[in-house]
Structures are given as structure tokens and as C-alpha cells.
Design a protein around this nucleic acid. Structure first.
Lengths: 190, 190, 190, 190
DNA sequence: AATGAATGAGGATTCATTCAT
DNA sequence: GATGAATGAATCCTCATTCAT
């Protein structure tokens, strides 16, 4: 019985294993074999499905991005209009996006994006999405929503780094931190 | 043409070459040979003077840190008391600290710090220095200088990332950005 | 032409090549590449199957030991009870154990055993085996079989060295030598 | 003041350091730098005096040999004629020849002698000396002193190996062992 | 679909040796 | 006499990738 539709299952396993391995090793020095082993298959198969190591990394990056997107959509959908900025911030540090694994993987992507076109494109998409969400959400509240959104976007990346290097065990610190800054901006307007 | 007292000269050349090579390759995937070649010597000599690749990287990191420290001291020494926060911010994005090379090198250190004790220690020193400088400078101006300093420190790291990935050619954008946020904090107090 | 089940074939080829190479170079300064080349494969494959150089050496040592063990069993099985001591001696210098290659390899193991736990363990096993075989075989003939066995065991190692350095071309000299000493012990008892 | 006659002092220091280092590392994998460091000079100077690594090793081997020769002469000179065989044996395991250092160094020479002409020559000289001493000493006592001497010489090498690998801490075991065998030979004659 | 087999290319590191001073 | 400086060559080991089955 030939296994039908194995491809999506295998791809999914590899992507998950990549994130897990990056998180475990906390470094880009992760081999295809290690990933494949964690995913329970041969490294040859990983190559077969993805074509090469770079594409495996990019697929992992896309996954993290889409997870974040889903998180953001869900937070926004259940938020009152005047709670939307906070909802966006919350989604950036939601459990699904802010585990030690994902943070460590995210760190490596910053570096990857410096040399890999596609990785850069993905990072810019992520940035643009948060930014535009924030602008929309802040527009009714602030006279200069663009600026505040830019500030928040930069702050969030900084908080990712701090979380990765300082206190990965306390994600709520980062959320509180971001919320406080957001409040400052909102207060300043009044 | 061997001479005496070459060690400091060679070490300096290697450190500079490391930063340059990290900046050029924009990745931690830089070989000792590449660094040595750029520094005009054999890789064996680089090993001789530093003991290993890790120590070469750490030396480069220390150099960047000490350059930043010097910049900060100089900016602070010539700043009026009520301009000290701005002076600190300026020093973070001063030309000597914020060239594309140094930014790219800095990015790789974020990743290195996840796995290398000493790199982490160095990064924490850098953080602590900016933070304590900022707290001191902000104390006369803000009721909660600690919080504002924390915010600014995180923001600065975020802006480094943005500069690395977005617009390395326009460092003044980052300064302006940081200054604006600082202003917001200062305004909010009034 | 990759096939299945190559592992044992490759391992075997490497082990044989190691002994041959040690015999040819007569030194521990044998590279994995040289061994792999002699075995008809890349050095990477040798590493793949054995994990490292030390383990290649140990596998070769184990092989020599097990060859010796087989030889000893066979000699003993076909020996009359009162010929068992001689059979044991003969097995120590049997053609399969006492070729120039194996002798030279054996010499290197003496040195390896000084620093490598496992090599030392293997050497002790070999010693203990000969010794216990000899004690059993000599018990009916000598009042102090343990002492005589100890003497013979030491003598055999000495004869290996002499064969390696003096006259590798004449193994029968060593056998005769050992037999003569054994006779002295047996005669002395009468 | 130019240091006159430094050469013999330096050579002596290097030779001693070589033996010490071989004993410490228990392996031929000893670098010239390590030896030179232990001898308190630069590796370049060691090269200057000896020409190369091989010659350093050979000088160490010669030293061990001459130490042994001195020991043998002294033991013989103070031994009663009927105690000369025992005196020779004793000299082989005398404290100056049978320290862990010297034993380990000796082990490496066995291997070196397989590939180095001069090392082989030195080893043969050592063998011949003990052998001829023993023959002379045994001639009045045994009808076949040559055979007994050959046996003893082989046994002694075997005991060196055993001392190196088994019980370096108990040299007197080896002496007793050799003495016992010698007694067996002497008893057998009666 | 899946994998064991296999390797070429490369990388960190070591070291004997040479040389200018 | 003595050494720091310097390197070429080598060695172990790793890994992405390919291929035959």
C-alpha cells in the first residue's frame, strides 16, 4: 500500500523539527541530518522534499510567520476596537510565537535575512504586517499613528533579542514591557 | 622580515579583519583562513595568537564594545547635563559604531551570545553600561528613569536589527527614530 | 554501485586495511586517509562507519585479538591433554597471528594501550586469556602452574618485540625459543 | 658576557625534558615545543642544537642506554663472581632505568626502532650488551649460557611491557619475577 | 516513497621547521 | 647564543548533496 499524501506530512514534520532543532542548538549550525533525525526520516528524504538546506530554513521561517499571522488574526477578531493595539502586541508575544524555541529560531533568521533574499523578504512581510495592523488600530487614537507603529515594531524586535539573551523563561516580562510603552504613547496623546 | 613586538600589531590586524569579514559576509560563516587572508597572514598565525576561532570572534566583539565605550565617554564628556540622554543615544549610533560592517558583526554576536558564555557576558556588559548611563542621565528629568532606560535599551537593539536589514545606508534614520522616542518619554513627563 | 548491507563489508575492509597499513608503515603515524585509500573508499566513509580514528584502531586491535582467540581454540581442540601447553604456545605464533603486519600492528597497540583505556582493556583480556589457558594446561604437570604461566606470558611479549625488531622473517625462531623455555620449566619439575 | 659552553647544558636539558615528556604523555605524540618548554627554552633552540625531532628522540634513547650501561657496570663491579647474573638482572630494573617515565619512553623506542635505523641500532646495542654480560656471567654456571641469556633478554623486554601496562607502581615485582626465572635456569642445571 | 551508501569539498587546528634579528 | 615570527603541509573530521536501489 503506497502511502498516499505523505508529502505534506513529511514536510510538516521537517519544518517542526527544524524549529525545534534551531531552538535546541540555539544556532544556525544545525545540520540537515540532525533535523531529519528529529523528524524521523533520512536526510536524503528531507533533501528530496525541500531541495536543499536553505529551503528547509525558509520553510521554517514561513511557518513561524504564518503562525504569527494566525495568532494576530485571532487576537484581533476578538478584540474590542479600542483594545486592538493591545491585542496586536499580545499576539506578538503569544505562547505560540514566543517559546524559547521560536525565539531562538527567530534570532537565526535575523542573521539569515542578511544574506538570503527570500529570508529578507519574509522578514519584511512580517514587519509590514505588524506595522500596518498597528497603524490601523492606532489611527483612531493617535495623531501620528505611523510613527508610533514604527516605534513599536522596532521595540518588539529589541524585546525578542532581550528575551533570547536575558530571560527566556519569563515571556510575560516582554509583554508587560511592550504594553507599558504603548501606554506611554497613548497617554502622551491625551 | 620578522620583527619584534609583532603580537599587538597582528592581533589588531586580525580583530579588524574579523569585523570587516563579518561585515562583508554578513554571516557567522566566516573562516579563519578568510580572516587571516584579509589580515595579510597565514591562518596558522591567527591561531597562534588567539588560540582558536571563538577567541578571535570574542576579541572582535570586545573591540566593538570598547569602541562603543570610548564613543560614549566622549559624547558624555562634552554634553551639557540636560543633553546627556541625547548624547548617550547619539553615541549608540555614532559613525564608529554604526557602520554596515559593525552592524553586521553585531548581528552575528546576538546569535553567538546564545551559545557562548563569554559573548553573552560581553553583551550584558554593553547593555548594562548603556542602561546605567541612561538611568543616571534621566534621573533628574523623569520620575521613573529606570523604566524609560529599559525601554530605550530594547529600542536600540531593535533599531540595530532594522538598520541591518532595512536601510544600512541611512544611519541617521535610526538616530532620529531613537531621539523621537526619547522625546516622547520626556514630553510625557511634563 | 551502492548496495544494501555494505556496512559489514566496509568495516571489514577498513579493519584489514588498518592492520595492513600499520604493518606497512610500522608506526602509529598512519592517517585515516591512508587506511581508507587502501580499503578502497573515501576517508569520510571510514569516519562514517567508525566514528573516529581511535575506534578504527580499536577495531583492528579487536580483530587481531579475536583472530588469536580463534587460533588458540583450534589448536587446543586438537591437542592431546599432555600437549596442551605446547599447543597454546604454538597458537601465539601461528601464521595468522605472527605475520610481520600483525606483529607491527601489535607493537603499536602496546603504545596505544598506555593512553587508551579500551586498548589497555583489550590487551589485558588477551593476556588473561593466554595466562588462564596456560594455567589450566600446566596444572597437571607443574606444582606451581601460575608462576610458570606468568613467566611464559611475559616471555611471549618479549618475543613479539624481538620478532618485530630482530628477525621478522623467521617466526619459527620465536616458537622454538618459547618451546625451549617451556621445556625447561617442565624438565625442572621432574 | 657571552655564555660559554651552553651547548652541553642545553643538550642535557633537552634530553632530560624529552624523557620526562614521553613519560608524562606516554606516547610518541610529543611535540618539540612541549619538550622545549619543559626544558625552559624555545623550540627553535632545540632544533638548532639537534637538527630535528628525530635526533632529539635518538639523543634521549642514547641517554637511557648510557644510564643503563652505567648502572650495569656499577652493579657488576660490586658483585661477587657467583652473584653476577643476579647483578645484571638487578641493573635492568634499577631505579634509574625503571621509573615510569623511562619505561614509557622505552616503549616508544620499541616502536621508533621499527622505522628508524639508528634507533634500531641502539636497541640492538642494548640487547647485545645485556646478552653478552649475561653469557659471561652464566658461563661458569650453565652448560648452555647462550640459550639462557637469550631467554632472559626476551623475558626482560616482556617484563618492561608488563610494567608499562600493568603495574608501573611496583617495579620490584618485575625484579622478583626475573630473578625467579633465573633461579629456575640455575636450578635446572644442578 | 524512501534510504543507505558514498564522496568532494572544506574547515579548524597542529606542528616541524625556517628565518631574520 | 637565542628567540619570536611565520608558514606550508598535513590531519581529523563534518556535511550538504547525489545516486542507485
Amino acid at each position: 500500500m503506497p502511502k498516499l499524501g505523505m508529502e505534506p506530512i513529511r514536510r510538516d514534520a521537517i519544518v517542526k523539527a527544524t524549529i525545534a532543532e534551531l531552538g535546541a542548538k540555539k544556532s544556525l549550525d544545525v545540520t540537515v541530518s540532525q533535523i531529519a533525525k528529529r523528524a524521523g526520516m533520512s536526510s536524503a528524504l528531507a533533501h528530496h522534499y525541500f531541495g536543499g538546506k536553505d529551503q528547509i530554513f525558509l520553510a521554517a521561517m514561513r511557518r513561524i510567520l504564518s503562525d504569527f499571522g494566525a495568532e494576530a488574526r485571532q487576537e484581533l477578531s476578538s478584540a474590542a476596537p479600542d483594545e486592538r493595539p493591545q491585542a496586536i502586541i499580545r499576539s506578538c508575544f503569544a505562547p505560540s510565537c514566543f517559546t524559547p524555541d521560536v525565539i531562538a529560531a527567530w534570532m537565526t533568521f535575523y542573521v539569515l535575512a542578511q544574506t538570503n533574499e527570500e529570508a529578507l523578504r519574509l522578514w519584511k512581510i512580517y514587519q509590514a504586517r505588524i506595522r500596518s495592523n498597528l497603524i490601523h488600530a492606532l489611527r483612531p487614537m493617535l495623531s501620528n499613528p505611523v510613527e508610533a507603529a514604527n516605534d513599536m515594531v522596532a521595540l518588539i524586535d529589541g524585546l525578542y533579542i532581550h528575551a533570547a539573551l536575558n530571560a527566556p523563561e519569563e515571556p510575560e516580562l516582554a509583554v508587560n514591557h511592550a504594553m507599558r510603552v504603548l501606554d506611554t504613547f497613548l497617554e502622551a496623546e491625551k
